[in-house]
Amino acid sequence: MIELRQVSKMYFRGKRGHQITVTAVQEIDLKIDLGEFVVITGRSGCGKTSLLNIIAGLSRPDSGQMFVDGTDIWTMKDEDISALRNQKMGFMFQVPSLIPTLNVLDNVVVPTLFAPKEKQKDAYQHAKQALEAVGLSHRMDAFPRHLSAGEEKRVVIARAIINNPPVLLADEPTANLDELTEKEVMALVQEIHRGGTTIILVTHHPSLIGYGTRHLTMSDGRFVEPHS
C-alpha cells in the first residue's frame, strides 16, 4: 500500500553563506501493508517526523520515490496529492493543530471541506458520531482554548477519522499527556486499528512499542534494527 524506495531528505540550517546540511532521512526503503500498525521509535532529531511527513506527502524527498497504492505521488499535481491526503490519510500531529477560531465540531468537519461532494452532505452528522466515538460529544461547542491536552488529542483523532481514511499517521500522539490520558488516547488508536485502519506512529516513548504489529527504530535518518 505504501512503499518508499531509497528515500532521502536533507535540510539546510543556519544563515545563508553559513548553512549546514542536515540529512534527516537517508536512503530509506520501507513497505507498509494494509492493516499494519507500525511503530517507529528513535531519539529526538533522528528523522522520525521527517519520514512521517514524506509518507504523508507533506514533504518532498530530495531523492528516491514514494508510492501509494502503486502510484509515485510526487509525479502528481498538488491538487491530486492534496486529494490523496484528504481521502487516504488521517493525521495526528505532535503540536496542537486545531484551528483556534473554530469550535470543536467545526474543527472535526474541516477535512470534509476538501472531500468529494457526496461526503460533504452528512459531514456534521459524521462529525458528531466521531466525537461520540472519542467521548467528546458534550464538548462540541467548546473552542480549542477551552480544552485540556487530552481532550484536544481526542478531537484531533475525531478529525483524523471523519473521512474514514485507510491510513492514520500519528506523530508523538501522547506527547505532553499524563499516563492515564496516554492510555485513553492509545486505546482509541487501537480501536481505530481494529477497524482495519493502517497506523503509522512515530514516538520516542518506548512504552508505545507494544501497541504496534511492527516496530522500527531510527537513528541518524536510517533504520538501525531489522524490521520485526
Partner: peptide, 16 residues
C-alpha cells in the same frame, strides 16, 4: 503557519 500546515495536511490544496 501552523493552521496553514494543518489545512494542507488534511487536504487543502495550494489554490485553496
Amino acid at each position: 503557519r501552523r493552521e496553514i500546515g494543518m489545512l494542507r495536511a488534511v487536504g487543502a490544496s495550494r489554490n485553496f
